[in-house]
Amino acid sequence: MAEKIKKEERSIESLAGKYLTFYLGDETYGIEILKVQEIIGMMNVTHFPKAPDFIRGVINLRGKVIPVIELRKKFNLETHDDDEKTCIIVIQLMVGDNEIRQGVIVDEVSEVLDISQEEIELSPSFGSQGNIDFIMGVGKVSDKVVILLDVNKILSSDELEALSNI
């Protein structure tokens, strides 16, 4: 038991830091600023045949072709048309030894927040249905509730496995 508590403390500790926050519907989400490469305006996305629903397609990021994920679809939220606030957050992650860059479409980017250890609660466990493990925890900063996302887990474990096997 004591061991478990210790483990939780350690992970809360590691969660503290700077987050880029953005809106998706009424909720505010945050992703670790260190994983964010840049934020770009909405652009022409090329549809990728047979790819899952939540993958909007691919874009040309200054000569590199990168996949773009529609977060609303991924989170089973109602989709709406893009507007001038819609943008793409380009994140960088390591899967195995491969560096992967991908874009995430969000409603609107908010601000960068510094969230301390005391303001973070680990993600509540909702029983055993485990498809919310991309939520690392919840940050409460001056009346605002920020859902902290684990960018590495936005893709399902199957998809990640497919990536790390290369």
Binding site: N44, T46, F48, P49, K50, A51, V58, I59, N60, G63, K64, V65, I66, P67, V95, N98, I100, R101, Q102, A162, L163, I166
Partner: peptide
């Protein structure tokens, strides 16, 4: 342009190409 690891299993698409207008085909 290489599509990278992400679309590896969709092998019927070999790679991407950047067209004159900047979009990807």
């Amino acid at each position: 342009k290489n599509l990278g690891a992400f679309f590896k299993k969709y092998d019927f698409i070999s790679s991407g190409a950047i067209m004159g207008d900047g979009t990807v085909s």
